[in-house]
């Protein structure tokens, strides 16, 4: 398991060229090669009422490396979705800066792909049109579609979309269906396929499987692991389900609030590497359960109570590489 981890760290930077190219546009934020997402001392707070102010995130600093599968874990309202929206560019941090693929995030763009929990597909397009939408619009914008070369390009994209569709375990007969004719699990399959069609190196998923029934969910988890293993994109996956986090991720980041008061935002309560080969209850048995309990203690915020068997439980993992220092300050 440790060996899997070290190969991960030795992975050559896949987008080094892109990063060096964009270095001149970036002057201040320090960029290490192979850092896909760099979060530098980010805080988010918004005003409530006349002079109240609620802090959601407080001094978050993270470096997410190229090819990591990061799971953001935390209780409801701890700001994990807010952090994802910051990476996406949908929200702006109150202070601090975020860069993705080497350049600062100012607005939502095609650097990262996105799979939300709901409304992940365009309801007015068939499955095939949904899949083809990304490549089509990125090459031909609204008026470019009138060009004669567009038709040939579209045929080519549709063929690729059909390939992607069967790769994701969907039938060719589903291609002509509208999203409302698909089940929730199928819709999320299509949404992942749609995101993958863009071939961007960062994939952001916001509670993508939370609305699905357990069987469908574990199917999709397996699918996502397989897909991640093929091209190794950087994934940031937000969830509140600890077991899901351990099954999917190579790194689990727990956000938790120190106290219930408004001025006190969430911080990184735990930052833990997991074996790159993945974990499961079947393979890891009791260790898995202990780890779930360990992680949940952090996300509840009551990790001060020390447990003697913790070290034993975590023995084989490279786990406590961040939380002692961060944990003490909390």
């Amino acid at each position: 398991m440790v060996s899997g981890l070290s190969t991960l760290e030795m992975t050559p930077p896949l987008n080094a060229a892109r990063e060096t190219k964009s270095l001149d546009t970036m002057t201040t934020a320090p960029v290490r090669t192979a850092t896909a997402i760099h979060i530098d001392d980010v805080s988010v707070s918004f005003p409530t009422g006349r002079k109240g102010c609620r802090t959601v995130l407080e001094n978050i600093s993270l470096d997410i490396e190229e090819g990591e599968f990061v799971v953001l874990l935390g209780e409801t309202g701890c700001g994990k979705s807010t952090l994802l929206r910051l990476i996406l560019g949908q929200d702006r941090p109150t202070s601090g800066r975020i860069s993705v693929a080497g350049s600062l995030v100012q607005r939502v763009d095609a650097r990262s792909s996105y799979v939300p929990q709901k409304y992940s597909l365009f309801p007015d397009r068939t499955v095939l049109e949904n899949l083809a939408m990304g490549p089509e619009t990125s090459k031909y914008h609204i008026l470019g579609r009138l060009l004669p070369s567009f038709r040939a390009f579209r045929r080519q994209v549709r063929e690729e979309a059909l390939r992607q569709l069967s790769h994701m375990g969907l039938q060719a007969s589903d291609a002509a269906k509208y999203p409302h004719q698909l089940s929730g699990g199928m819709q999320q399959r299509v949404a992942i396929a749609q995101a993958l069609m863009m071939k961007s190196r960062v994939l952001l998923m916001d509670e993508a499987f939370s609305a699905l029934d357990p069987a469908t969910r574990s199917n999709l988890q397996r699918l996502l692991r397989t897909v991640w293993g093929e091209t190794k994109p950087t994934v940031v996956f937000v969830t509140h389900n600890t077991a899901e986090a351990l099954i999917l991720g190579t790194r689990v980041i727990v956000l938790a609030r120190q106290s219930r008061e408004d001025h006190c935002g969430s911080r990184v309560a735990l930052d833990m590497k997991l074996p790159a080969s993945g974990m499961s209850l079947r393979n890891n048995g009791q260790q898995f359960l202990d780890l779930v309990e360990h992680v949940e203690r952090f996300s509840r915020g009551d990790h001060h109570a020390p447990s003697a068997d913790l070290d034993a439980a975590n023995g084989p993992y490279e786990s406590p590489n961040a939380f002692p220092s961060n944990g003490e300050t909390l």
Binding site: R107, V108, S112, M133, G134, T137, S138, I142
Partner: peptide, 9 residues
């Protein structure tokens, strides 16, 4: 947001 991540203008 999704449309923007699909490189729509």
């Amino acid at each position: 947001v999704k449309a923007f991540t699909l490189d729509a203008n």
